[in-house]
Amino acid sequence: MKHKISAAAILLAAMLLPMGACRKPTQYTDALTAAELAADARAALDQTEFFPAEKGYLNDYFPIPEELTDYEIDLAADGNNLSEFGIWHTGNGVESISVLLRGYLEESFDRNRSFYDSYIPQETPKLRDAEVRVYGNYVAYAILNDTDRKTFFQTIENNLLAQ
């Protein structure tokens, strides 16, 4: 009898477990602009001074679709610092932008690694470990050290969940 109850309990748990995985997808707001998120990110990463990049910043890697206007890329002002992040706000294009950004990060590392290693080798790991994440209609990438990268993505997510 004891074994039958245990087996039933196991069977019940096995039936219920997948249902836990069928959670509602995380609801992120669509109400914030990339500039607003970037401003909060800069405030959170307050040990570094950031400069906004120009429109053609990624031209060597991919042309940014003309319809995509709500984005911002910030780079560390100090020429010895590779820190950089970017935030895109897009409706249907989230997946394609995230693919393009992953390509940018990989290609930038390949192309620029030896140049950066020649004078700021301590910075190159930021580019090697760079990451892209998607939050609803937003794509964000970070070329930051481990601590700042965590802070950056946490800030973005907190902002997009809080609305």
Binding site: E54, L75, D78, G79
Partner: peptide
Amino acid sequence: ANASGTMKLDSATLSRPI
């Protein structure tokens, strides 16, 4: 010049401050 004392010509050149 920028703080690093070096530059590379690419699409980022005009974005990087001196």
